[in-house]
Design a protein around this nucleic acid. Sequence first.
DNA 1: CCGGATCCGTTTCGATACTG
DNA 2: CAGTATCGAAACGGATCCGG
Lengths: 142, 142
Amino acid sequence: MPKSESVKHRSGCPISIALELVGDPWTLLIVRDLMFKDKKTFGEFLNGGEGIATNILSDRLARLERAGIVTRQRDVADARKVGYRLTDKGMDLAPVLVDLVVWSAKHEVTDAPAPVVREMRLRRDGFLKQVRQAWRKEAKDA
Amino acid sequence: MPKSESVKHRSGCPISIALELVGDPWTLLIVRDLMFKDKKTFGEFLNGGEGIATNILSDRLARLERAGIVTRQRDVADARKVGYRLTDKGMDLAPVLVDLVVWSAKHEVTDAPAPVVREMRLRRDGFLKQVRQAWRKEAKDA
DNA sequence: CCGGATCCGTTTCGATACTG
DNA sequence: CAGTATCGAAACGGATCCGG
């Protein structure tokens, strides 16, 4: 299984997608938790990802760190605590996640359409800007 | 592993994503081949997906069909040939795929930035409309 | 030949138990 | 709290076989 697949468009242009991160469900869930929620620690992912095993979580966090999508840092106050944070590269995945949430809400998930989903769909650009801004703000606080 | 994961946003809204299709790399490749290229048949996916085994391909196509993302139909002229086609639900994945291609081009793939990627990024809405139109046209021809 | 189905050795996953 | 170790179960991939 190659990491990214490159093929020829009929017009002759390569259309490649990186698979190793999006090709895995757990990875997606972690990125989503980091992006749209306040989850930052191992334990929070454990409860939020709903059913992920500790070894899998550990492995995926390591992969994401190696891929430059998240950074890992010990809490200066509490040395036991470890915090994860999306990098700029990781935040660039926001459009993908947003589209995915919107698609899921339309076709798969039976929940009543949440206001957040409506905003994602109707004010996409604004929503993305807002998420990015919140991320930057959090960086300064830390 | 649940099919879709629903959690609470800090504002109290559920943010769910369907995982069974995007969580798998092969599935994504097949959808991409269907969407952006002319690939339609089993054999074309085999060569295009670059390295997928026949049993895996068969399984993924069946899953996609069950999920209502592709349809399967025998060629009326040549009974040996089988064609696959994206449904409307499948075409709704275009935004996700486009974002993914753009992200990959920026962060992962070393290829020179293709003109198609530029168009996806700079004229996103127009590109999506164009893809959808081509899909509709193909439906009429068949 | 095309479009798969089946079998099988190998790899990976994931639940639980355990450790610092 | 933040992970490792272990081990059975599942998925993968390669080859081969089969029906039209």
